[in-house]
Design a protein around this nucleic acid. Structure first.
Lengths: 221, 221
DNA sequence: ATATTTTTTTAGATTTGTCTAAATTTTAAT
DNA sequence: ATTAAAATTTAGACAAATCTAAAAAAATAT
């Protein structure tokens, strides 16, 4: 895999994110996302086309080809590994990690990234719950977040409980929640951040913020 | 402190290194060091002068002013902290860390650097034995390396013994070496990498490679 | 002290990535 | 099916960082 400039990498990564389900990406959408001008996007698309990373016909939009996706995944891998590092090792707050990772992701040493991955213990999800691509670009195709970060009315499945104390297990049993339980969050009570959740064919139950933070669920395509 | 481009930072850092003892740095010397052309150096010096980081009179060479030195120290701080991280945490070999650190040093988030410093335990020397500037730009003014990395005929003082086993202490006592002992390395026997060392007013003694690697000395202005 | 060599600077060009304004193509509306 | 609006591309310009070749200044040698 060749090396690409920071600017090229930002375009590639952003096309990847916009191109969910292989939709064609438009010039305006990309310009808007990158806080730049449509004319600049056109210029860059010509370049990425000659570098054989995108399919592009003037006026017809563009999409990453196989090689482009491979490059995108390696950038996303770097970004999410650095996010994990910043959060887990350097104790950054969630809302501070993105911008720093945005810079670190462009340091392209392959060996650095793979050794960082090893050092971190080959994490599968970053602190936002997004899956981290492995060395080969493979990753889980769902999000994993704590129940307190799950969007409303989104069906999700319990996959992890981070606090294994007997008190925790007791309340889980009482609420009828176990690994594999499918549920969705219906409502949040701002007063104490407790959540009303709905398990299929059961009456809604309320869960404390503390409990919600320790239950991890997976969702998404 | 403002932000500077990668290129500007490389110039600033290199001037700092060339400018030992406040010597004036010449255009050719800097061009040679940065693998660039004298004309490019002149261009950049004009820029750094308008940014008030260097003193510069055409044809008269240049040197960093106070602000320039402050910036240089912060770049060197980042570089050496990353070198320490790469070596200590990611287990890179000594000869692989420089180039990667050269890239990482340009990620300029102040918070990142300070949290990294904390995570690493506020190390005072990088893996090459060079001192790491602290948050305020202060650092030790000597090198600290293992005896096996000490240049020949350089007076140095033992300041640390990394292996505290009784066997180690026994051989040290036998060779008359303790914290504070002043010595220099005279010769290296390539066959087994043993070293001949000279302690003042004593006959030379020979030290095994293994022992030398565990004795750390400080030297330099 | 003058000539020669070396160093440094200037002038003008190049590359990358960006921009604005105008032209072109596509899409939507009547 | 035209026309109007929106999206996209082209043309030409600019800033940063670099380069080569030529000019100017400083250092050195005779």
């Amino acid at each position: 895999m060749l090396n690409y400039s920071t600017s090229e990498e930002n375009y590639i990564k952003t096309i990847f994110h916009l191109q969910v389900d292989n939709d064609t990406v438009t010039t305006n959408a990309l310009a808007h996302e990158l806080l730049t001008r449509p004319a600049s996007v056109t210029d860059m698309m010509k370049k990425l086309k000659t570098k054989k990373l995108v399919q592009y016909q003037p006026y017809k939009g563009f999409r990453l080809n196989m090689e482009g996706k491979k490059v995108a995944l390696s950038i996303i891998r770097r970004h999410r590994l650095w996010e994990f590092f910043l959060s887990e090792k350097l104790k950054f707050d969630w809302d501070e990690i993105h911008d720093v990772a945005e810079e670190l992701e462009h340091v392209s040493s392959r060996k650095l990234v793979d050794k960082l991955d090893e050092f971190l213990g080959y994490p599968k999800f970053d602190p936002h719950g997004d899956p981290i691509p492995d060395v080969h670009g493979k990753m889980e195709n769902f999000q994993r977040v704590s129940l307190s970060a799950l969007p409303f009315n989104t069906l999700a499945e319990v996959c992890l409980v981070s606090n294994q104390s007997s008190g925790m297990l007791e309340v889980l049993r009482h609420k009828n929640i176990a690994i594999g339980t499918k549920l969705e969050v219906k409502k949040k009570f701002g007063f104490d951040n407790s959540l009303e959740i709905k398990i299929r064919q059961q009456a809604p139950v309320t869960i404390s913020e503390q409990l919600a933070k320790n239950i991890f669920v997976k969702y998404g395509s």
